[in-house]
Design a protein around this nucleic acid. Structure first.
Lengths: 341, 341
DNA sequence: CTGAAAGCGCTTACAG
DNA sequence: CTGAAAGCGCTTACAG
């Protein structure tokens, strides 16, 4: 059997309460006692039983997820994954509360954050909007010692404990390398479609993309970004305009959402006049586009993984549980038709 | 506060013991009582506190990992990830026991399996060797109700509860699509290097690779597999021979291990005479090869993920915990220089 | 600075 | 078929 606090207390000649104080690094124990207890812990190889600790603390760990509203497939996926994780985590005393906030609305997001009672919650995960009211709301939570992680889209200058998501510059570079390689020996232009160049992730992806195309693929020229506002009809329209205007387009990188509009625009063109396409996020639609040959690669981030990583990260900031770094790294996943999950 | 067994017992007018019997589906409760208790559980929204249950059961959940010995980088990675996970899981009452077995030695593996006492262990994860003694050993564990998962390399016809690893046919297809795309407009041959065609994963990858090259890339011809026994000097030698013999080689797919030998063989050739290379498994060496342009893509499976997935899967077979399927899917990861973790 | 005792929410013999 | 009581390994007021 594994040694328990009783064994440690007995061997060190102290009470349970003192062992508890030492284990949890609480104040009010003479230094010599601390050392004695710690020696015994090492000697016996004591490891705290987390189940018992949680039980005794009788704490339910409440985590709030705040996710943007709207038709964005990825955000809806994130939301359903959060609810699913909430169900799975319930037996472990973790209570997830998932709320949605108007997209791109800093004030609305800040209002939600300001409505949270720091004593009631153990952590917050949010898709950040980089706006001043959000900065202030996060500062308040920070000073109340509420752990916060940003999800998917970071706000590096705001107070948060960690960013859980992909490196978007690297994602853009990856898109460029794929298109560059797939267009070996071909000269022409590449169309770039984004939702809005006001959003950090889109800007960062664009940056990474340009870095690689400019320095490594002189045969290709990236056109200025056209913005489709991440919605279906406008994306469709701007892609059509773009392809009609410029017959030299041999590749297309969709930096943001709006894949449905893109698929519609591409479908109506004759096969031989379709560009090589790299887009983001796996969904039923992009998967079908990949399988039919309309898209050539998808760059994806795993929404379920992000949710679970956020939960583990937040919990580790309250429990003294250590994380396995490798488990928390969010991969830039590359999918071809052949390695679809 | 969440309802507890006490609340359920009170509301249903039964004792704690009866509630416990119903929750855990144990025998010996009148059907009408079961229904009454279940109704209350639903009504109150009772969810069992897993921490308390584990504590009361006082059970440490012992899992045995059996991993092949030898210099194979991936297997060593798997071993260290298992030990790391063991450390992280200890507070949750999971005790990992990691042992190594001579590689490709069915009898040795079977001996280890036969030495396990079914009453002492909660589950087994092993890299399977498809040999008759292993089949028998797994049958014995199966009839003793010990959950077993195969790791990395499956033995589909043996008794195991699940395979935790990638789909190797799909991995081979992915390699083919990458090389096919990267070699657009180029005609020539592709060298295939494996460890041994007696191992299931290598055979399956080869099969997937051929499927795609034959049907979609008439400009490319896959040469017969040469076997490098997954070691450095022989892989180096056969790659050198192969490239010297055939100046038409424009691509190379390393199906197995032995990447160090491959890197040596490639390094000594002039840049313009090097083929496009796709290989398996990320390591310090393959990462460097990718960064320097010697390799063009790496297909990887995440050893840490596999280990943790095996643990969750085994535990779910004992606890009645349900898995999130998406979390247990092992991805066929594609890395270019730009999306390295 | 230290300790005795109660309690967290389950499960487990044991008794009936 | 059902229940009363003890116990799992921690933590928490409270007393000293």
């Amino acid at each position: 059997m594994r040694p328990t606090v009783h064994d440690v207390a007995h061997a060190a000649g102290v009470s349970l309460a003192t062992v508890d104080r030492v284990i949890n690094g609480r104040e009010g124990v003479r230094a010599s006692t601390v050392q004695r207890v710690e020696a015994v812990i090492r000697q016996l190889g004591f490891v705290r039983n987390q189940a018992a600790a949680n039980l005794a603390k009788g704490r339910v760990y409440r985590i709030v997820f705040i996710i943007p509203e709207g038709a964005n497939t990825f955000m809806r996926r994130l939301e359903s994954e959060a609810r699913e994780a909430g169900r799975q985590m319930a037996p472990d005393g973790i209570e997830l509360c998932v709320v949605t906030a108007p997209a791109f609305d800093g004030q609305a997001l800040a209002d939600i954050l300001n409505g949270l009672d720091p004593n009631e919650i153990g952590g917050v995960a949010l898709v950040a909007t980089e706006a001043p009211p959000v900065r202030q709301a996060l500062a308040r939570l920070h000073s109340a010692n509420v752990p916060v992680v940003t999800l998917v889209s970071d706000a590096p200058s705001f107070q948060r404990h960690r960013y859980v998501g992909i490196d978007n510059v690297a994602a853009g570079r990856t898109a460029a390398s794929l298109l560059g390689r797939f267009l070996r020996g071909v000269s022409g232009k590449i169309a770039l479609v984004a939702g809005s160049m006001l959003v950090r992730d889109h800007v960062e992806r664009r940056m990474g993309f340009d870095q690689v195309i400019r320095t490594e693929y002189p045969n290709l020229e990236a056109l200025p970004v056209v913005e489709g506002r991440d919605d279906r009809p406008s994306t469709r329209r701007i892609v059509e305009e773009c392809l009609d205007r410029d017959p030299d387009i041999v590749g297309l990188y969709n930096i943001g959402a709006g894949n449905l509009g893109l698929i519609e625009a591409l479908s109506e063109r004759p096969t031989e006049r379709r560009p090589m396409v790299v887009a983001h996020e796996l969904s039923v639609h992009t998967r079908a586009a990949l399988e039919s040959g309309l898209f050539h690669a998808i760059i994806n981030q795993d929404a379920g993984h992000e949710v679970r990583s956020a939960i583990r990260t937040l919990r580790s900031l309250t429990d003294q549980r250590t994380l396995i770094e490798g488990q928390e790294h969010i991969r830039i996943e590359v999918y071809l038709r052949d390695n679809l999950p």
